[in-house]
Each structure stands twice: as C-alpha cells, then as structure tokens.
Nucleic acid binder design. Structure first.
Length: 580
RNA sequence: GCCAACGUAGCUCAGGGGUAGAGCAACGCUCUCGUAAAGCGUAGGUCGUGGGUUCGAAUUCCACCGUUGGCUCCA
C-alpha cells in the first residue's frame, strides 16, 4: 500500500517537474534545460537562464504551470533513435550531452505533453490533468553545478514540492513550519544556549550558561559511562609543531583544511584538526607489551578545521568543535571483540539520549590503489565491522569503496523526532598512522608488531550533537538535560521567603533550579517559564506555604496542586534517574 | 569556493535620496496579584565594513565581511 502510494507520488512529482520545465520555456524561450528528477517530498529542475530569477518569477512560473495542468495534456511516450534524439534536442546542449553519454544499446525515450518534449525514461501520470493545480508549490531557487561538477557551469535549480491533493500539501507545509520552529539556531537564541560571532571568528561556538549546563550534563554522563566501559581519559594540547602533521601526513593531504601555522622560535605550530597524533604520542611514550592492550583512551578533544565559508551552518558545521574522541590500540585477535563492544557502547549512548532508530553504513576499501595497508588487514577489519553490525541486528548498507584511504569504517545514522537522519557515531580503522608513527607492541613471541588502531566518536562532535538534540527535543529537553529543571514561582511578593526556602533546598539536592522573584504577575512568570520550556514549575502561595507543599505545573500544562515537598522531590529524582 | 537572497535597537521586524520607526526585552515608578503577557514612563541605533555617485546616502553603485537557501567539499 505505502509503496504503491510512493510510486504514485513519484509520478506526480516527476510529471510536475516536466510541467515546470514547459512553463519556464514558455516564459524564457531561450532557456536551456538540464535535468529534473523527483526527490523526497518533491522535485527540482535545473535551468540555464538568461538572467537570475527570484521569488516573483516563481509566482509567474506557478501560474503558467497551473494553466498547463488545466489543459489536461497527455504525456506521450516515444522511442527515438540516437540521431532523431540529437536532432530533436539540437538547441538543448545539456540534453545533447546526456544523449551522447547514453550507452550504445540504450533505448532512448522521450515524453511529449503537447508542445513540450523532454528526454526522459519516464514514467509519468497519463495527462497533466491528473495533477492538481493546488497541490504543488515552488519553494526555492538555488545554484547547482551542471552534473554536480565544480568546473562546469552553475545552473539555476528550482525546488518544488508536490502531492496528490491540497490537504497533503498543506500538511507538508505545516511540517516544514514545525521544522523551522525547531531550528536549533532559532531555539539557541530564544533559550539562550549559544551564540556565534562573525567579528570574533565565523564557525566558533560560544556556549552560554544554559547551553553549558546541558553540555556538562552530557559530558558528565559521557565520562561516567566511559570509565564504566573500560576507557581511560586523557588530555592533550590544542596545538602542535609541524613535525606532528608532517608525520601524520596532514600537511600533505589536508593542509587546506587546517588553520594557518603560527611561527614560534623557528618552529611552525598548527591548531589540531584531529586528536589522533597526540594520542599516539602518549602511546609511543613507552614500549608496550601485548599484556597492556587494549588501550582505550578517550578525550573530549577540541579540534579546528578551516571549513569553506559556504558550508558553515549553525552548530552543525563549524570550524572549532569538540569530538568525543577515543582511540583503541589492540592486538589483531582483540580486534573483533573491541569492534563489537564499541558498536554496542555507541548504540547504548545514543539510546540514552532518546534516539531509537538507527542505521549503519559500512564503507569498504577504495579501489584504484587509493589506500594504504595490506589486503589481509582490510579484509579482517571489514569482516569484524560487518560481524559487529550483524550481532547488533542493525539494518545496514554497504558503501563499496567508500572507506577512507586509511581504513574501513562504520557510520551510524540516527533518525530524530522529525524523521530526519543525522550521522553521529563513526568507528574507523586506521592503517596509516600506526605505520607513519612506527607504533609497536611486543607480542607473546617477543617480536615487535604493529597494533591495530581504531578511531571512534560516538556522539560525533559535541556541538553538532547539541544541535541535533535541540531539534530532536524542540528545545524541551528531558529533565536530566534541562538547563533549568525547576522554576519556582511565588504568586506574590509575600511568598518570596517560602520560594527562597524551597529553592535553597532544591539547590542543595543538586537540582538546577531558579526562582522568579521579579515583580511580574504570576501569569507572566508561568508564561516565561513555559517559553523557556522548563519541565517543572512550582507555584507557591498561601496554601502551599501553610502545608509545606508545592503546586506542580508541568510544561505540558498538566498540574497537581498541594503536593508535599518530599513527594515532589522523589518524583523529580525519579524523572532524572529514568532520563525521561 | 560557486549561484542567489539578505544584513536597520539585545530580539522580531517596518521604512527606503532630505532630522531613524514599532512591538517585545532592559531600566524607573505604580499595582501585590492563584496557572500562558498589569499600567505609565525612560533610555537604547555611525541602518554589516570600506569606497564611489550626490548639495545631501540607511536608501543608489562597487568591493569586502557575514548570514541564509542550495551546489561542490567533508582525506
């Protein structure tokens, strides 16, 4: 059923793209058209236009599209020879390029909807009348390179969304609005969590007190769990001499991603784009026995990468960020257990933050000699990754040849409350650095051997993870993460003393609590606390003071009056404990 | 880095060649209040930065910086 519906929507979307192309050609007869596929929730079409278009043009295009739809023009499929196709599209250079790139034996098909013919393998709805003029909407215009190639011309891409009826369209637009409301950049401002400052450095995150409280709650939990799971914590510097980056190979392969060097005492220092070389310095500080292994060393390591200006995005893509990094150094026969354990731990951590849907991506050895390390190592490592995924019963996809040159990896993507996928965890083998830094351990047979090195981040970067959390919870963090867990609200100044007493007791119990002693009216105080999405509001007045009780209002609006303070405390602690 | 749009008060936004506007927030005063915004008042801006055009630029033009939507990139 669902699949059938998706297929139908795909036809609608792709057909709408054709209608848009016809409309654009009507308005801009000299336009060159490129490609126009259906995508998730909609479609796009790429055009090479005589001038850049804006929102007003979208309206014009929409009107013309609606007229075309009303004409109920039939989509007619035709098979043509290569010569015919080239003749047909002789004024459309992008189409000509596509035709020339089709394999020898390809069956070339076109779709004609009366007046407009497009090179297309189909399929389409029977006629434009099957589309509803009120159930599509052109959303945005963006630049896109022809065939995604930076060196080719930049085309104008028009994005649209299309549905089978106006109600579905309305629901989708509402969904988009909801996503906008949850945007971490907007909520970060409203809830005073963090800020970015162009004058102080783009892509550098400033954590405000409330954001810092959440971060500390995340980090405390993270450290506790890492110690429980056999990790040691280490700290390493933020900058290092060029020797490190020459040895690691970063200066050869990754220099444009690094901040420029600082020259001091005739040496060049660089801000670290990765923590690995530093962890290796600690490893290489002494000779290791097989008995020492595995070493599991974790660090919330802040790294700096000079990301291109156009890719920065709130907390999701920044230039300075903290990886929840760890490196595992182990013997070949420990590898399989270590990988399985790391994956289990990773899923446990993500589940603790309320994520329930996961998908794994296994990336294997790149072809064409673009990799280091011998074949047998790659095979063994890839197999251990695959086994771990299967053991956890995870759904997974294999990205054949998608691994980095230095080793295979697993990436874990989660789905958030809005159904969007985010890549968080990564577990990667590294066959490059142990070689370059000449890492060894002494095995049972007394011979020096190279350890396996596994690089892993569970949350990814703390900044990005925070951004994902903000959007996942829409700013309404679970109690254990909420920057302010309890807001104490006296109904009038006369009860400030009781409010202070309750606040002090909560604070002494380690609760993140705030009292609103402003001269706002109680209603306004509730509204403010509600807008801050504080999980518990304690309203205190004459009755509560007399009974030593509190009236509890949840951010859901649910309230229970006259709760004995001790009862509230245990209810609160239970909520914190259960991470709900 | 590329294409496009945008940048006005702490925030959200209006204005658009001739003395810079609103709401919220802030501050002061009055009100002492029972579950989503009390009232009055005060203060707050080189209109992103630099340059050009003009008698005069926040407004027009150019360059730069940044943000946003995408593209490319993310060994």
């Amino acid at each position: 059923m669902a699949e059938e519906k998706n297929e139908k929507l795909e036809l609608i979307r792709h057909s709408t793209a054709h209608v848009m192309a016809e409309a654009v050609l009507k308005l801009f007869p000299e336009a060159k058209i490129a490609i126009g596929p259906s995508i998730e929730n909609g479609f796009y079409y790429d055009f090479d236009l005589p001038r850049s278009i804006g929102p007003d043009d979208l309206e014009e295009i929409t009107k013309v599209m609606q007229e075309i739809i009303k004409e109920k023009k039939e989509f007619v499929r035709a098979e043509v020879s290569r010569a015919e196709a080239l003749e047909l599209f002789k004024d459309q250079p992008y189409k000509v390029e596509l035709i020339n790139d089709l394999p020898e034996d390809a069956v070339i098909t076109t779709y004609n909807q009366g007046g407009f013919t497009d090179l297309c393998r189909g399929l389409h709805v029977e006629n434009t009348g099957k589309l509803n003029p009120q159930s599509f909407k052109l959303l945005s215009i963006a630049g896109a390179y022809w065939r995604g190639d930076e060196s080719r011309p930049m085309l104008q891409r028009v994005y649209g969304t299309a549905w089978s009826n106006p109600k579905e369209l309305r629901m989708h637009l509402q969904h988009l609005e909801e996503m906008e409301k949850r945007d971490h950049r907007k909520l970060g401002k409203e809830l005073e969590l963090f800020s970015l400052h162009e004058e102080a450095g783009p892509g550098m995150v400033y954590w405000h007190p409330k954001g810092a409280r959440i971060r500390l709650a995340i980090e405390d939990f993270w450290r506790r769990e890492h110690y429980k799971n056999g990790y040691e914590m280490i700290y390493t510097p933020h900058i290092g001499k060029s020797w490190l980056w020459e040895t690691s190979g970063h200066l050869d392969f990754y220099k444009e991603g690094m901040f420029n060097s600082m020259e001091m005492d005739a040496s060049d220092y660089y801000a670290k784009p990765m923590n690995c070389p530093f962890h290796i310095m600690i490893y290489n500080n002494k000779k290791h026995s097989y008995r020492d292994l595995p070493c599991r060393w974790a660090e919330l390591g802040t790294v700096y990468r000079y990301e291109k200006s156009g890719v920065l995005h709130g907390l999701m893509r920044v230039r300075g960020f903290t990886q929840d990094d760890a490196h595992i150094f182990c013997t070949p026969d420990q590898m399989e257990d270590e990988i399985a354990e790391t994956l289990r731990f990773s899923l446990y951590m993500l589940k603790s933050f309320g994520f329930t849907e996961f998908k794994a991506y296994l990336s294997t050895k790149p072809g064409g000699g673009k990799s280091v390390g011998d074949e047998s190592k790659w095979e063994a490592a890839t197999e251990s990754l695959r086994k771990a995924i299967v053991k956890e019963g995870l759904e997974y996809e294999v990205d054949e040849g998608g691994g980095a040159f230095y080793g295979p990896k697993i990436d874990i993507k989660i789905k958030d409350a809005m159904g969007r996928a985010w890549q968080l965890s990564t577990i990667q083998f590294d066959f490059n650095l142990p070689e370059r830094f000449k890492m060894t351990f002494v095995d049972q047979d007394g011979k020096e051997k190279q350890p396996y090195m596994i690089h892993r981040a569970l949350l990814g970067s703390i900044e990005r993870f925070f951004g994902v959390l903000i959007e996942h919870f829409g700013g309404a963090f679970p109690v254990w993460l909420a920057p302010v867990q309890v807001e104490v609200i006296p109904v009038a100044e006369a009860f400030d003393a009781y409010a202070k007493k309750i606040t002090a007791e909560l604070k002494a119990a380690g609760i993140r609590v705030e009292a609103d002693l402003s001269d706002d009216r109680m209603n306004a105080k509730i509204r403010n606390a509600q807008n801050q999405k504080i999980p518990y509001m304690l309203v205190l007045g004459e009755k509560e003071e007399a009974e030593g009780a509190v009236s509890v209002r949840l951010r859901s609006g649910k309230q229970t009056n006259g709760v004995p303070f001790a009862d509230f405390m245990s209810q609160l602690n239970e909520a914190i404990e259960s991470k709900s």
